[in-house]
Design a protein around this nucleic acid. Structure first.
Length: 567
RNA sequence: UGGGCUGUCGCCAAGCGGUAAGGCAAUGGACUCUGACUCCAUCAUCCGUAGGUUCGAAUCCUACCAGCCUAGCCA
């Protein structure tokens, strides 16, 4: 198997600080625990899609292998035929590649080891380390005892090796029904660690497996199969999440019982799980949301799945950066979503085009601008990155500005549009608000302004300064749009006309739904390769696609940061 | 309740006996053709609590408290 780890981006901080797991590995290397090089693995069960938490686990294993120039395996832990499917293995591989953790040729399946595990199990039985148990699930649970009381030995615990071998053969050959018999490790029913109370290591399951088909009627349990899988793949460090800490003694028991086959057994070490505030985490719950139709699918932008994040506009770089930022700890952590958002912002900042958009339009008429005239003004795509160039926007007598950029009675500190105040329209001119037209209810429906031709952008005007710069759109070159549940702006063909019934770009219902799902920052992406950026009052609006020859096309919008406004 | 693990700023997180890094968030200010960005400043006399050891402790010891995991023929 290839030992090469494909390169991924370095941690932005560039520091070489090792996390505690890497320090453990380093110690092992120093004391020559293994004659082979570091080898880690990521063992997802193919029963769901990868999410940000999975990436955290991948990053830890992959990162350790990379740091010590070792190898990394992707192994599908598919020992339960009832829950697994090929759809998930394909999605997992795809997502890992997208995220920059390409396992290359090192893709394995636990189900490929069924034969080997079976053979080893025969030896285990021959050595008197396992026995076939006829207890029903209920009886087994009863006899296991509780947290405070020890379990009692199974009446079948002392069957002879011959009998166990014969029964196990029967299990294998499918002469028993599902659940009728199990194979148990013979350890200690009074152990304080319940995992050691003669745990079940094989069960009869008359079910076909998505890969091995109908070949097997018995399937090994995770606790038994996992250490063997690791050992078969020459894993040195099996880094998993902390809920498996209590399983470590069993992991070691199995490999010890099989030491004749695995002289240099891998070791399991644990790290705390990572979750993100407001994110729905946990495969079981995610699957429920998908299967019950609460979301579009695994790639719903409201989900913290890889596909969801991707559709929501997150870049690989930003995610990797985020993982580097949060570190690795022994205890579970809940990272604030703002950290993830910050990573995206940092990444997009120099790469994204800055585009103008108006979410809640307020018409503006430049009363001293010639009727019917039109000119094109130049706006930089990204002031921070001149290489992104500039583009032209149409400017005319009738414009739109953001409704919140006007206040009839300015609050203290408000420096945008109000009667008599002058502001700059980005890339265009200074305009001064002369009058606000209202409807019969007193609502401002239009602003009458004047502009100063001398202040045209790029003209070097220094005569006077202005306190604010606003974004705007030309009314005839704007595609009305409506925001949907996912924060996606949808073109709405039905909206047109001289005095259009301006859509509420964010309708209350959507906001409530989005709030409930904690996705007020969500978006969807039609073209992940195009990154645009719009920042307004702290909001990010990404991927708004401008084609000079056509109309303004909104592809997606995201508000990543709700900065408190000052006036 | 038994066993295991963890407790350092609102959130992540360094620190590993020598007198509390950094990031996110927040706050104040400067700057600005997007109230963004950038910049500058502030932000734990204290490391779950109480004792103890030591010249000296977040780091060692003891007790207590809190949180998480654990009684699948799931992984």
């Amino acid at each position: 198997m290839p030992e090469e780890i494909s390169g991924i981006n370095e941690n932005k901080s560039g520091d070489n600080a090792m996390n505690f797991l890497e320090r453990i590995i380093e110690d092992d290397i120093r004391s020559n625990v293994y004659r082979r090089s570091v080898h880690t693995r990521f063992p997802p069960e193919p029963n769901g899609y990868l999410h940000i938490g999975s990436l955290y686990a991948i990053n830890i294993n992959y990162g350790a292998a990379k740091r010590f120039k070792g190898a990394f395996n992707l192994r599908f832990d598919d020992t339960n035929p009832l829950k697994e499917d090929m759809e998930y293995v394909n999605a997992i591989i795809e997502d890992m590649k997208w995220a920059g953790y390409d396992p290359g040729e090192n893709i394995f399946f636990g189900s490929d080891y069924f034969d080997r595990i079976y053979e080893l199990t025969l030896k285990l039985i021959e050595n008197g380390r396992a026995f076939v148990c006829d207890l029903t699930p209920d009886e087994l649970r009863e006899s296991r005892g509780t947290l405070t009381t020890p379990g009692i030995n199974s009446p079948y615990r002392d069957r002879s090796v011959e009998e166990n071998l014969k029964l196990f053969d029967g299990m294998k050959n499918g002469i028993y029904s599902t659940g009728e018999k199990v194979l148990r490790a013979k350890i200690d029913m009074s152990a304080a660690n319940i995992n050691m109370r003669d745990p079940t290591i094989y069960r009869v399951l008359n079910a076909d497996h998505y890969r091995s088909g109908d070949k097997w009627r018995i399937y090994p349990m995770y606790d038994y199969a996992h250490p063997i899988q690791d050992a078969i793949e020459n894993i040195t460090h099996s880094l998993c999440s902390s809920e498996f800490k209590d399983h470590r003694p069993l992991y070691e028991w199995v490999l010890n019982a099989l030491s004749f086959a695995f002289p240099e057994p891998p070791k399991q070490r644990e790290f705390g799980r990572m979750s993100i505030t407001g994110a729905i985490t946990g495969k079981r719950y995610l699957r429920q949301l998908v299967s019950q139709g609460y979301v579009d699918g695994w790639d719903d932008p409201r989900l913290p799945t890889i596909k969801g994040l991707r559709r929501r506009g997150f870049t690989v770089e930003s995610i990797y950066d985020f993982l580097g930022d949060i570190g690795v700890a022994r205890d579970n952590s809940t990272v604030d979503i703002s950290m993830l958002e910050n990573s995206l912002r940092e990444d997009l900042k120099p790469k994204a085009h800055t585009v103008m958009a108006v979410l809640d339009p307020l018409p503006v008429e430049i009363i001293n601008y010639p009727e019917g005239a039109e000119e094109w003004v130049v706006v930089e795509n990204n002031a921070e990155n001149p290489e992104l160039g500039s583009r032209e926007l149409p400017f005319s007598r009738n414009l739109l500005v953001e409704r919140e950029d006007f206040m009839e009675v300015p609050e203290k500190g408000f420096r945008r549009l109000y009667l008599g105040n002058e502001v700059r329209l980005k890339g265009a001119y200074f305009i001064k608000c002369e009058k606000a037209l209202k409807d019969e209810n007193g609502n401002v429906i239009k602003l009458l302004c004047t502009y100063d031709p001398a202040t045209k952008s790029g003209g070097g005007f220094t005569g006077r300064k202005v306190k604010a710069t606003l974004h705007w759109l030309d009314v005839n070159h704007t595609l009305p749009a409506r925001i949907n549940l996912y924060g996606r702006l949808l073109p709405d063909e039905n909206i047109s006309g001289e005095e259009p019934d301006w859509p509420r770009l964010v309708d209350p219902d959507s906001l409530i739904a989005m709030e409930n799902a904690r996705v007020e920052e969500s978006l969807s992406s039609a073209r992940p390769e195009e990154k645009f950026q719009f920042i307004r009052h702290g909001y990010f609006v990404a991927d708004i696609h401008w084609k000079p020859s056509e109309k303004l096309v909104f592809n997606r919008i995201v508000a990543l940061k709700d900065t408190k406004k000052k006036g």
